[in-house]
Design a protein around this nucleic acid. Structure first.
Lengths: 102, 102
DNA sequence: AATTCATTTCGTAATTATACGAAACAGAAA
DNA sequence: TTTCTGTTTCGTATAATTACGAAATGAATT
């Protein structure tokens, strides 16, 4: 068979999976899901990483589209991006529901 | 609040997500799900990577527990590990079903 | 204009990921 | 025992990830 590149769905799925591929990012999403939104400074108190490291992880989640930050001087309120979260859920859940014809 | 390490669930979830964080590994799992099992040599014909690179990705999926290889000289037949696949589905689906109290 | 506050960016370092071709390997077949 | 076949390991290179503290930023307040 001919070699092929990846489909948009495979790329999207991998991107969302990658966003969740570190325990601290899983925890961040759990915190945000629990309380809807959260300030970065409040989050860092429950996380075993430095502030600057948290900032990097938040940037990754933002780049993946899963969260968005609302500037609320001098704080930044982070929330889950519902659209993206729903899309990630749909893509991954559908994918994981695939069963082998055993 | 006190700083904490990660829960077993967060670590497991992140590990499965990481296994799926590259499009070619998503595609590999789709191939295996489609036809139950597959020889590495047959897979490489549908994938845009070299044999040695495929081998590396298969090792990653094996380390994550998602697949297992059965030696069938001189070929190796790869199959999905149903137990792990089910666990990944459960963990990720539950996680992604979390909704913010918006 | 200087200070404060929450956060990010910078500089840096160590580790891991991704990719390839060449070489090694293990078992079957000749 | 030599050859063949499918696969992995090795050697290597480049890029991305993860981490931290120090310094910079941006907006509000003094």
């Amino acid at each position: 068979m001919e070699k092929s590149k990846y489909t948009d769905e495979q790329i999207k799925l991998a991107r969302y999976a990658k966003a969740l591929s570190h325990p601290v990012r899983v925890q961040i999403m759990e915190i945000l899901a629990r309380q809807s939104c959260c300030y970065s400074g409040d989050m860092v108190d429950e996380l075993p990483i430095a502030r600057s490291t948290l900032s990097q992880h938040l940037t990754e989640l933002r780049n993946a589209g899963l969260i968005q930050g609302e500037f609320n001087p001098p704080k930044i309120k982070y929330c889950i991006n519902q659209e993206a979260w729903k899309e990630a859920a749909k893509l991954l859940t559908t994918f994981l529901a695939k069963k082998t014809t055993l």
